[in-house]
Structure formats: structure tokens, C-alpha cells
Design a protein around this nucleic acid. Structure first.
Length: 262
DNA sequence: ATGTCGATACTTTATCGA
């Protein structure tokens, strides 16, 4: 069984309903992790996606953040919130377990904190959130399952993942401490799906709305699918749906997806 | 040189977050 699993920060479900539906029809993903839905659960248009034969799991929040998962296959389990801080109210993590022929597939939709400006409480919150994610990933890897941690990590892993590195020096997405924590996560034994399929530089998933970033290809790679070894063994392909950035009223992010042979 | 977008509220413009 071949499964296509995608992640896309849509920057507001209300503003992106039509774009998302168009892309679903065109790309036909089996599982989609969405970030920045910027909607409470009750206002998420689940029925539109149910009509397209998706099961829908939502962990929303008013105005900001919010994550969701759409899946053609039913959910065995749905787990909102990243463990490690009961006081954290921000809707940035949703995990689902789905039965596949080779066993259980665990998929997470991640919206890692941006962390800017770095001289505010936002940056330590980001770093602490990354520590929590690393701790949780360590637990998951111990179960030797097929795990896909997909989402907007707000992390530029390497200088080759940014068009103009000088412009990002000091930014929360590119600070050495940020890259170091991302490496600690990956070094638990996760595989960056895009890097497993291409060593090419200049593959981006985000272009800012400002200053003509898209026509200048002034992009960054911050949306990632990190795979457990059991998932990486099944990896067939990883690609970026860059064309969606040139659509009318686009998200500033584009979908990135993998195909797994399960 | 500048350049944007989406959601919200004591709304028709300002503010915040990205």
C-alpha cells in the first residue's frame, strides 16, 4: 500500500479553504498535516473535507496557531498537545495513530514556535518547546513504530536551506542555538525525508509575503518531515509542491510530502 | 528604498503575530 503524507502551513483555514480544496483534488494526499488553521475547533469546516472522504482531527485555538490532520484512513487514536508542560495553552501539536498493512502509523502535525523577537520570552519558549519535542520523540522512537513528525518547524537547518543566509543571522529560525536543538532532535535517530531524497541546496518551503520574496526566490526550508527508521525504510519519494506559491491568495508556505510504501 | 497577509476588536483603522 502506497500512502502519500503531506504537511502544509495554510496560514488561516478561512482564507485558504478554496486553495486547500483545489490542492487536495490535484495532489490526492492520503494524510495531510495542517498548521496555522487560526480557528477554534467548532469553526473548522470539517464537513467540507469529510465530503471529500477525509477523516478530520482538529486541535484549534482562537486567532492564532491551531493544527489539524486530514486522513483517508480512520484514526485509531488522536492525541492533542505536546507532553511536558501542562500550562502551555498554545495549540501547536496533534498526533494520530492510523492502522496500515504493516502495523501502526503514528503521524504528528507540528507547529513549532517562531521564537521572534529573540530578546523576548518568545525565544526561550521556542527552545523549551524544542526540548519537549525532543523528549517526546525519544519516547516514540523507543516503541520502534512507523513515525512521521511533520510540520512547520520554524527551523532553517543548514545555510544551504536559505537563499540569503546573511539576512537571517540572529533570527530565531536561524540562530545557532535553534539549529543545535534541531540537530539534537534529528540525532535521536530521525531522518529528514527531504534530505534523504536530495542533497540539493535551494529547496524551499516558505517565501515571505513581503519585499517580493517569491519572485526573487528569497526562500527558506522550514517545513520538514522527520521519520523514524521504520518509516524511513518505507520512503519512496519526497517532494515540494512549489507551484502553489504562485496561486492567487496563496499561503506563504507550500506543501511538502512523502510517499511511503507500507 | 519599499514592498504583506490574516484575524481581531470598544472595527471601517489599528494592533498583533508571523
Amino acid at each position: 500500500m502506497s500512502l502519500k503524507i503531506a504537511t502544509w502551513n495554510i496560514n488561516g483555514i478561512k482564507a485558504r479553504i478554496e486553495r486547500l480544496q483545489d490542492w487536495l483534488k490535484q495532489a490526492e494526499p492520503d494524510i495531510v498535516c495542517l498548521q496555522e488553521i487560526k480557528s477554534v475547533d467548532e469553526n473548522f469546516p470539517s464537513s467540507l473535507f469529510e465530503d471529500m472522504n477525509y477523516n478530520v482531527a482538529v486541535h484549534g485555538q482562537k486567532s492564532f496557531n491551531g493544527v489539524a490532520i486530514l486522513s483517508k484512513l480512520p484514526f485509531d487514536e488522536v492525541l492533542p498537545r505536546l507532553p511536558g508542560d501542562e500550562a502551555d495553552e498554545q495549540a501547536r501539536y496533534l498526533e494520530a495513530v492510523i492502522s496500515v498493512p504493516s502495523g501502526a502509523l503514528r503521524v504528528a502535525s507540528i507547529y513549532l514556535p517562531n521564537g521572534n523577537p529573540v530578546d523576548t520570552e518568545k525565544y526561550p519558549y521556542k527552545l523549551a518547546w524544542m526540548d519537549r519535542l525532543t523528549n517526546h520523540a525519544r519516547d516514540l522512537l523507543g516503541n520502534e513504530e512507523i513515525v512521521v513528525l511533520a510540520g512547520d518547524y520554524n527551523v532553517i537547518p543548514e545555510p544551504g536551506d536559505v537563499h540569503n543566509p546573511e539576512a537571517w543571522v540572529g533570527d530565531a529560525l536561524f540562530r545557532p542555538e535553534t539549529a543545535e536543538k534541531f540537530r539534537s532532535l534529528v540525532h535521536l535517530g530521525l531522518i529528514d525525508a527531504l534530505r534523504a531524497s536530495s542533497g540539493e541546496d535551494g529547496l524551499y518551503t516558505f517565501w515571505d509575503y513581503q519585499a517580493g520574496a517569491w519572485p526573487k526566490n528569497n526562500g527558506i526550508r522550514i517545513d520538514h518531515l522527520l521519520l523514524s527508521p521504520e518509516a524511513a525504510d518505507k520512503l519512496v519519494r519526497c517532494d515540494i509542491d512549489k507551484h502553489t506559491r504562485s496561486w492567487e491568495r496563496p499561503s506563504d508556505h507550500v506543501p511538502i510530502w512523502i510517499e511511503l510504501d507500507l
